[in-house]
Design a protein around this nucleic acid. Sequence first.
DNA 1: GATGAATGAGAATTCATTCAT
DNA 2: TATGAATGAATTCTCATTCAT
Lengths: 197, 197, 197, 197
Amino acid sequence: MKVSSEYMQAKRDQIARAAIEQFSRRGIHLTSMANIIEASELSAGTIYIHFKGKNEIIAYVARTTFSGLFAEVEAAVTTEPPPRPSELIDLITSRIATADIPSGLLIQVWGEAVSNQEVRRAANSVYEQALDTLREYCVAWMLSGEGKGLPTARREAPARAHLMVSLIYAQILQMSLIDGYDTGSLSAELATLLDRS
Amino acid sequence: MKVSSEYMQAKRDQIARAAIEQFSRRGIHLTSMANIIEASELSAGTIYIHFKGKNEIIAYVARTTFSGLFAEVEAAVTTEPPPRPSELIDLITSRIATADIPSGLLIQVWGEAVSNQEVRRAANSVYEQALDTLREYCVAWMLSGEGKGLPTARREAPARAHLMVSLIYAQILQMSLIDGYDTGSLSAELATLLDRS
Amino acid sequence: MKVSSEYMQAKRDQIARAAIEQFSRRGIHLTSMANIIEASELSAGTIYIHFKGKNEIIAYVARTTFSGLFAEVEAAVTTEPPPRPSELIDLITSRIATADIPSGLLIQVWGEAVSNQEVRRAANSVYEQALDTLREYCVAWMLSGEGKGLPTARREAPARAHLMVSLIYAQILQMSLIDGYDTGSLSAELATLLDRS
Amino acid sequence: MKVSSEYMQAKRDQIARAAIEQFSRRGIHLTSMANIIEASELSAGTIYIHFKGKNEIIAYVARTTFSGLFAEVEAAVTTEPPPRPSELIDLITSRIATADIPSGLLIQVWGEAVSNQEVRRAANSVYEQALDTLREYCVAWMLSGEGKGLPTARREAPARAHLMVSLIYAQILQMSLIDGYDTGSLSAELATLLDRS
DNA sequence: GATGAATGAGAATTCATTCAT
DNA sequence: TATGAATGAATTCTCATTCAT
């Protein structure tokens, strides 16, 4: 029974969606395969046709989660007109808060990365990509928003991008961890620090 | 064979130390009770005399880990002479990097907090304490380091403290997560942003 | 690998048979799941597909045991030609002695009923059924065997049925408990007391 | 530290009382040594000074329970003036119902006797004693109550005693097992059958 | 004799994975 | 490909018993 690879990919996503839902609700390691099987409305055997095992699902979900994060970063930097740095952080933060990838999962996956090499590699890879993307954004912003010259911009952009990544990660962390956390309470401060136009 | 409560506390710590070591190495949920039993050099029964079960160990380790984090924050703000804000973040970060509580455990525990109410409460509680402590530090710094008046300091301190907590958490996250991460690469930037003396 | 519900029921019975055998030999609570697993020639996991746990097995075995007892009562009262009361007790007693449900298990299950609500309910339910069945038998016997009128029969049957249940239970008890017990030694006496035809 | 044997016996009884209470409430095998230790207000070590282990406690409790039963039988047959047979059964039944040995424990101990040789021997021994005592009572009753001659009485007493034991055991069984059981509902019937004075 | 922390074998149960249909 | 009953090693936890104090 030959099936299209679209079909296979759709099944993988169906399983991944179920896993994501269960992982965020119960915790990655408190979610059993039985939980995923039930939530996906598939059978045990079918899951194992599409994934080699639970570890592969975890790795896939981790990559999906990181992709989601990176997609928001990229969407934010390409917004027109270009947002100011503080607006960009707000934008990313608020989009992640409402994304179909629960932000609680991000922290869990970071925790997983500590002892799981495959997940760790994915976390590093996404981190580098985000840093690169924000570096380019910072160069552009310094040129047009702050009126700096290209050499100056290139020199200062890495540190600025690093700061922005840090603030984004910190917002995600606090958003998922702190009950009643107000994302906005950092925004005003960031505006005065980052948006020197 | 009556023993003192110090003895009992020492046993708890012996077990907790073993758990911390195993949790950081293997991951919290990939550590079995058997792993903790072996690492603690105690018997299964003894563990269960001192802890109700694995969940209680996790919660205790989480609280210990958070206490360790808070202890570094407090040690840093009481350093003499008072460090500048960027120095304070450096100080906390570097102390955590070398503390007996592995920083990888902190991230895992944050991940655990997503689905474990008890751990979550502890995470929130430590966060509030750290914020309070940093707020006081910021007021003091603005008065003496920036020459601001008390009303101004009081008004601006919360946002500044929030920013500092965010940066500390972000540093911990990157330190544990990003291979070859250079803590110092953020320091210079922070100095220009935070230390307006 | 979809299977019929008859197949599932057959598995339950296979497990129950193994449990019954082990329970009678070792005692209910001295039988471990490992004993049942081995005797059933199934795996641990399979047992737990078919029963929620040991308690469910105990309850199922209790119900099975009581059903077996009631089946003998019912078989005896419908014997043709209708046996005299003392013959009926003999019949039930001797059938139970040779039934595939060991009579020792009955006593154990009665003991279990003291502290196990589910088993207790089953014991009460079977008792009531047996009493009802014997009451009908007594009415019929008084009408045809003793030549009494219907009102008299109806009035006297409950006490007679109660007496018969008591004697049946007492025989089972002594049969399982007393080494070298001779069931017959009560029969003659019962004949003179009960069979007033 | 030499102590009197009265002291030792008192400790044994203290432990046995705790065990009896726990056994009747929880079931013999669902009672842990820890339960007995707590209920007896002694320590684990002390229990093991006075009993070799749990099995010895069970055996001791079983013997105590059977002794209690036999004591009621004996008390009843020596009542003055001599009770009629049906009164005797009533008397024994009602005394057991209010004795400090819970009747539920009797059934459990009978259940235990199925797979525990020591308890079984005790059960048999008490049964024989009760039978002997009731045989003597029956002889006496037939002589004085029914006006029979000694040879007749001696010939008929065994069967009568057997019947009485059976009825006593049956009453205990139903009393402990059947919710809302009315002991009296058998009494009237027994009066007409047994008290042919 | 009394204590109670320590022991470790053994208990019940779970769960990722397989494979006959 | 899909199914879901079967597997059995691994897991968490308990408990009767011991022994140093």
